[in-house]
């Protein structure tokens, strides 16, 4: 749900990074935070456990610039990936404008990827959304690990509708901004359709 303020000429949108535990959602946000100019970003807030696992969410506000005289702001959120945080995970999707699914490319995490994607679809439908009618980008993370699952197999498992996909190594930043840019582009074009 975008927030358009004609008085202050601001456009605010919410993007959620979803995916199984330890797939690199928080790492994506940390990389974006580290590589963004100070005047373009707010604080990176992480509600995490003592062992640095996401407990509720991470939050990063980004002020990207202007479009047609409107200041464009994207609020990036991650969800807690671990299965037992299901109740919290659902809440973060409230008012979402675009979703990035971060899939873990390791063979042993394929089941976790599929389970998380199912969970995403269920949680969205409970809030009245349909995943594939939302701006949606797929990121295949950890491509630097030897013997990862080939892209074709990942596509077959978690991207049957062929949404835009990006290979990434979030720790070094490969594919991170490409993914963000794609989901932002989709969100803005979605607005264009409606306003």
């Amino acid at each position: 749900m975008s927030f358009i303020n004609y008085s202050s000429r601001e456009l605010n949108c919410k993007i959620v990074y979803y995916g199984p535990g330890l797939c690199g959602k928080t790492t994506n946000l940390q990389y974006i935070y580290n590589k963004t100019n100070p005047q373009q970003k707010g604080k990176l807030i992480s509600l995490a456990t003592e062992t640095e696992r996401t407990l509720f969410f991470d939050f990063l506000p980004l002020a990207l610039g202007e479009i047609k005289g409107f200041k464009v702001r994207f609020h990036l959120y991650t969800v807690p990936g671990q299965m037992f945080y299901a109740a919290s995970r659902k809440l973060i999707l409230k008012g979402v404008d675009g979703v990035v699914f971060v899939a873990d490319s390791q063979a042993e995490r394929m089941d976790a990827n599929m389970e998380s994607l199912d969970d995403l679809q269920i949680n969205l439908s409970e809030q009245g959304y349909e995943l594939y009618s939302l701006p949606f980008t797929m990121q295949y993370n950890k491509r630097d690990i030897p013997e990862v699952v080939p892209i074709e197999a990942l596509n077959e498992a978690v991207n049957t509708t062929n949404v835009p996909e990006f290979e990434a190594v979030a720790t070094t930043g490969v594919g991170v901004f490409e993914t963000l840019k794609d989901v932002c582009r989709q969100v803005i074009f979605e607005l264009k359709k409606h306003y």
């Binding site: 479009i67 047609k68 932002c184 607005l191 264009k192 306003y195």
Partner: peptide, 19 residues
Amino acid sequence: KLEDSPFAEISDEDIEKLF
């Protein structure tokens, strides 16, 4: 009132500029 909308004319170039 789509013709008045500031978002109706958004192009790929506008989005590129944001990044």
